[in-house]
Amino acid sequence: METKRLIIILFVFFAAIPENARSQNEIIKAGLIRTQATISFSDMLNSGNSYFYLHGNMEAYFNSKISFCGDAYAYMGALNGVSDFAYNHNIFFGFLYHLTQKQNDTYLGFQPGMAFTRLNENKFLLTHSQAGINPEFSLVLGNNYYINPYFHFFVQGRLIVGSHNYNVHQNLSEFRFSAGLGFNINTLK
């Protein structure tokens, strides 16, 4: 209850800040760095299982159109049924292309990455499951709304393609959704 109240207060506080940037459109430019940490929910396209992850990222803007972004996902568990994985952590890195209008920033991108996986031994009746490193790639589509020079709201969808090739082959194709409040700062004048 206390947590919910705190979230509502923070939301109203940040949304209500009358910043100069609202009218100047000076936030999205070269030198902007944004970061976030949130919980991400997923749907495995092959098995139908749903998992959730701790999702963190950091992004640096070269200009208002191009940025470089690194994302990390820490596997936290299954939302339904027995998980196929003991863990399925990921890192992704790549460029994003932004379509900006005032404080609104819609972007799309392609990020190669790696999955660090290990199968659930009980699910697959294994005496020992191997930890594996698997190449992946992902397509990203999202939106940031910069409410002031320090905070923004974001939503992001990510389609991941890859496969686990240890012990038992598993398709890692997955859709992930993240949303929340992020932090940003302009490092260049």
């Binding site: 460029f95 392609f110 190669p112 790696m114 190449p135 890859g162």
Partner: peptide, 20 residues
């Protein structure tokens, strides 16, 4: 400087994907 994803095909081993 850049990143890449690669698909390996037309091999006796089958197909796969790569990151680099």
């Amino acid at each position: 400087l850049g990143v890449r994803s690669t698909a390996s095909t037309f091999s006796d081993e089958g197909s796969g994907i790569g990151t680099g």
